[in-house]
């Protein structure tokens, strides 16, 4: 093993950096609520199980003093600012705690006119990474328990937020597992890919956790819930499942912020972020479009140029 590398199970970073972020979030949240600058702070609080965390809408200084930032803070809290979850927040300006990946989602929502930048006080967190799905939360964060998205994260440090909590410790270089998996799939024949996805989608039980945690799935009436006319079968069978996941990936193309929450929450371990990531990669190659931490006026599929590629059109 070369110097500077570490094994998959050694702790990734000094836990002190999470403690520092926690202290900074608490101080900012308490200040905001006491000064009446916001009506609520959407952050994380500890759960009953060791190492677990959950979203918390803090409306009092006491609650704000309980907010935390740990590797268990997996949720993308931008969800709470989407139309679908906004009902959980009080009226007025709110503050939200975001990691870099969550900030891209928040910027996307602002870009899609779901809220205005000045309606939200953004508390960014310098995030070394969070646990992946199914990780043992009681153990310190290590490469093996790190979320796959975090191994290749380019937004550890949020930009353009009102404040940044914590500082970033030096982070090890890790093998880009997701990029490798994507390349593996791309190298397959269409038949092999069909077999791969058929098997993955067959497992889907249509709990719709992927949809419900996605900040961009805010339609009041999801196309896939409609039955007159019915575009997608609602029963959890391979046919409807496949259609659902294709439609989902298509509707997120050019919007997905890459927070990979859909993949994390999938109780059936379907690697959903591969679809989103593939679409992001294609849209970058075709149109140079990337989701960023700053709101963009137009998305890849809501704009066009005269000279767009049409080599596939006869």
């Amino acid at each position: 093993m070369t110097q500077g590398q570490q094994t998959e199970s050694t702790p990734l970073v000094d836990p002190a950096c999470y403690a520092a972020a926690t202290a900074a979030i608490r101080a900012e949240a308490v200040r905001l609520l006491e000064a009446g600058e916001v009506t609520a702070v959407v952050g994380y609080r500890a759960g009953r199980r060791a190492g677990s965390a959950m979203p918390e809408v803090a409306t009092t200084a006491e609650a704000a003093a309980q907010l935390i930032f740990t590797p268990g803070c997996q949720n993308n809290l931008a969800l709470f600012l989407s139309k679908a979850k906004r009902e959980a927040l009080p009226k007025g300006k709110v503050a939200v705690v975001v990691k870099g990946c969550d900030l891209r989602a928040l910027a996307g929502l602002i870009g899609e006119s779901q809220l205005k930048r000045d309606e939200v006080h953004v508390i960014g967190v310098a995030c070394p990474g969070v646990y992946g799905a199914g990780a043992d939360l009681a153990k310190p964060l290590a490469a093996e328990s790190l979320a796959r998205k975090c191994r290749e994260c380019k937004v550890h440090l949020p930009e353009g937020t009102d404040v940044v909590a914590g500082t970033l410790p030096p982070l090890p270089d890790l093998a880009p597992l997701e990029a490798e998996e994507l390349a593996r799939l791309e190298a397959m024949t269409p038949q092999e890919r069909w077999a791969f996805w058929t098997e993955q989608f067959a497992r889907c039980i249509r709990c719709l956790a992927c949809r419900q945690v996605c900040p961009f799935c805010f339609c009041t009436q999801c196309l896939c819930d409609r039955n007159r006319p019915q575009a997608v079968d609602t029963s959890p069978r391979p046919a409807g499942n496949t259609a659902w996941h294709i439609v989902r990936a298509m509707h997120l193309a050019g919007r997905c912020a890459g927070c990979a929450e859909c993949e994390r929450v999938c109780p059936m371990d379907i690697p959903l972020n591969l679809l989103n990531r593939k679409m992001a990669q294609e849209l970058f190659e075709l149109y140079g479009f990337e989701t960023t931490m700053q709101p963009q006026e137009q998305g890849a599929l809501t704009s066009y140029r005269d000279g767009d590629d049409q080599s596939f059109i006869k």
């Binding site: 709990c207 079968d233 029963s235 409807g240 109780p267």
Partner: peptide, 25 residues
């Protein structure tokens, strides 16, 4: 439950949840 995202993961993994819908396909 303000934080509840409204998915069916809990019910679908539960050994005792038994609600169902009937659809024509």
């Amino acid at each position: 439950a303000d934080r509840c995202a409204g998915c069916g993961a809990c019910a679908f993994l539960c050994p005792a949840c038994h609600c169902f819908d009937i659809v024509d396909e």
